[in-house]
Computed example of a mutant assay.
Amino acid sequence: MWQAEQVTKQQIAFLRKLYLAHLIDDGQHNLLSLQKLTGMPRRTVQDALAACSDIGIQIAFVQDGVRNNSGYYHIQTWGPINSAWVGTHLSQIELLLQIPAAPSS
């Protein structure tokens, strides 16, 4: 895949979209849970989710409650992206994005 010292901003943005899509496809997540899992700022997560359609990934917000922000994101389609590839390379993606390790139980 990529070498950490050679990764461009555009590649990081692409990997961020893939990573968030993987998390959404793996469980019911809202903005807050994605922030906590990734350690990314709220605005970064929002911008990446909004830009996923640029690479063909269609994400919808499923309203699940009375409040406007009660609900979760759902992948409608991965488009041209192979979701299995993302799962296979997940540890490399996390390393390149500097995602904090999950706390041990």
Rank of each mutant, 00 (worst) to 15 (best):
M1C: 05
M1N: 09
W2L: 14
W2S: 03
W2I: 14
Q3R: 13
A4Y: 03
E5V: 10
Q6W: 03
V7E: 04
V7Y: 01
K9W: 10
K9Y: 04
A13K: 13
A13C: 01
A13L: 04
F14I: 05
L15S: 08
L15V: 04
L15K: 07
R16M: 05
R16A: 06
L18Y: 09
L18K: 05
Y19W: 09
Y19A: 03
Y19P: 00
L20R: 11
A21K: 07
A21P: 06
H22M: 06
H22L: 13
L23I: 09
D26V: 00
D26Y: 08
G27H: 13
G27K: 12
Q28T: 06
L31F: 00
L31I: 13
L31K: 01
L31D: 03
L31V: 05
L32A: 13
L32Y: 10
S33K: 11
S33Q: 05
Q35K: 12
K36Q: 07
G39R: 02
M40P: 00
M40G: 00
P41F: 06
R42W: 01
R42N: 08
R43V: 12
R43C: 01
R43Y: 01
T44L: 05
V45F: 12
D47R: 15
A48W: 07
A48L: 03
L49S: 07
L49T: 12
L49N: 08
A50Y: 10
A50G: 03
A50K: 13
A51L: 06
A51C: 07
C52A: 09
S53M: 01
D54N: 14
D54M: 08
I55A: 10
G56W: 05
G56R: 07
I57F: 02
I57A: 14
Q58A: 15
Q58E: 15
F61I: 09
V62P: 04
V62M: 11
V62N: 02
D64W: 03
G65Q: 04
G65F: 03
V66Q: 10
V66G: 01
V66W: 04
N68S: 11
N69G: 00
S70F: 07
S70L: 08
G71D: 11
G71A: 11
G71E: 03
G71W: 12
Y72L: 10
Y73W: 10
T77G: 02
T77K: 09
W78R: 08
W78K: 09
G79T: 09
I81K: 04
I81Y: 01
I81H: 02
S83D: 08
S83V: 07
V86L: 13
V86G: 05
T88H: 14
H89M: 12
H89T: 11
H89N: 15
H89R: 15
L90H: 05
S91E: 12
I93A: 03
I93C: 06
E94T: 05
E94I: 02
E94R: 15
L95Y: 07
L95I: 00
L96H: 08
Q98H: 09
Q98E: 14
Q98P: 00
I99K: 07
I99F: 03
P100R: 00
P100E: 01
A102H: 05
S104G: 11
